[in-house]
Nucleic acid binder design. Structure first.
Ligand SMILES: [Mn+2]
Ligand SMILES: [Mn+2]
Ligand SMILES: [Zn+2]
Ligand SMILES: [Zn+2]
Lengths: 138, 138
DNA sequence: AGACAGTTTATAATGATTCTAAACTAGTGT
DNA sequence: ACACTAGTTTAGAATCATTATAAACTGTCT
C-alpha cells in the first residue's frame, strides 16, 4: 500500500497522528478520482461493511469533524434531516437530486459567473453557493 | 383587531381551525411589512415575552410545520445547528451574515439571471437558490 | 524501553424535534 | 342553547443525531 504514505504525510503535516482509523478513512474518502459526497451515516455503513477492524461511530464523527476543521472536507447543507460532506473543497455549486437524495457537482461553466450587485457596508462576501434542486420529470 | 379576520380567513381557507394560538402566531409572523426570518427558538422566545397566554413549544412546532406544509413559510437551510424559516415564500436569494447569524433577502436584480447550462436527462429543475455568505471586513 | 500527549472507544449526556394521549375547543347540527 | 365530534393544544415522554466523558490504547520522542 504505497499510497498510504501520502495520507500519513498529509495527516502529520496537519498535526493529526496517522492512526490506522484515520488512514482507513482517508483512503475511503480521498483515494478516488471523483468527488465523494456522503453523510456520516453512509460513511459509517461503508466502514462497517468492510470486514477489517471496526471503527467506532464516535471516531467517525471525530475524524470527519477533524478533517472538516483542517479543510479537507466541506459540509453541504441541503435538508434539515441530513448533513452532507464533500471531498471537493474547491468553490463549486451543486445539483441536488430530490429523488435519489444525492448531490452532484456542477462545473463553473455550467452555472456562469454570478455577480452580486448589492453591497453591504462593512461586510465582505465569503462565499457564493448555488444549489439547484432537481427531481424526476412527470 | 380588525386584521384578525384576514388571518381567520386564511386559516379557514386552508383547512386549519383559527385557534387563538394560530392567530397570535399569524399576527407575529405575517402582520408586518418586511420579510421575517426566524428560528423556532427565536419565535418561541418572542412568544414567551409577550405576556399574553403562553403557547406551548409543541404548538409552536406544530404551527410552524403546518404553515410550512401549507406554503405560508419556507425553510432555509444555512448551518447545521439552526433551521431558519422565512415569511417570504417567493423564489428569492439570500445574504447570510455570519457574524449576526442573520438572513437578508436579495432582490432578483441584485443577483443576475442564473442560467444553468447542464441538463440531467429525465430531471427537471425545481428551484435555484443562491446563498451569499458575508462577514465583517478586517 | 519509558514517558506522555493524542486518540479511540463504549457509553452517557445533550438537545432539538417529534410523539403520545389526555384535556380542551371550534364548528356543525339539532 | 346544547351536545357531538373532529381537530387542536399541551405536558411530558420518546427519539435520534451529535457531542461529551473518561478509561484504555497508541504514536512519537528521547
Ligand atoms: Mn423540519
Ligand atoms: Mn457539524
Ligand atoms: Zn461537491
Ligand atoms: Zn428570505
Amino acid at each position: 500500500m504505497s499510497n498510504n504514505s501520502i495520507f500519513i504525510k498529509k495527516l502529520r503535516s496537519s498535526g493529526l497522528r496517522p492512526t490506522k482509523q484515520r488512514i482507513k478513512i482517508c483512503k475511503l474518502l480521498f483515494d478516488r478520482k471523483n468527488t465523494f459526497h456522503f453523510t456520516i451515516n453512509y460513511l459509517n455503513n461503508i466502514l462497517k461493511n468492510k470486514h477489517s477492524e471496526k471503527i467506532s461511530l464516535a471516531t467517525v464523527y471525530n475524524t470527519v469533524n477533524a478533517f472538516k476543521k483542517k479543510g479537507y472536507l466541506k459540509e453541504i447543507l441541503i435538508s434539515s434531516d441530513k448533513s452532507y460532506y464533500d471531498t471537493n473543497i474547491s468553490k463549486h455549486h451543486h445539483f441536488y437530486d430530490e429523488n435519489k437524495r444525492e448531490l452532484i457537482d456542477l462545473d463553473d461553466k455550467d452555472v456562469g459567473k454570478i455577480n452580486i450587485k448589492k453591497v453591504l457596508p462593512g461586510k465582505k462576501i465569503n462565499s457564493i453557493e448555488v444549489l439547484v434542486k432537481v427531481a424526476n420529470n412527470n
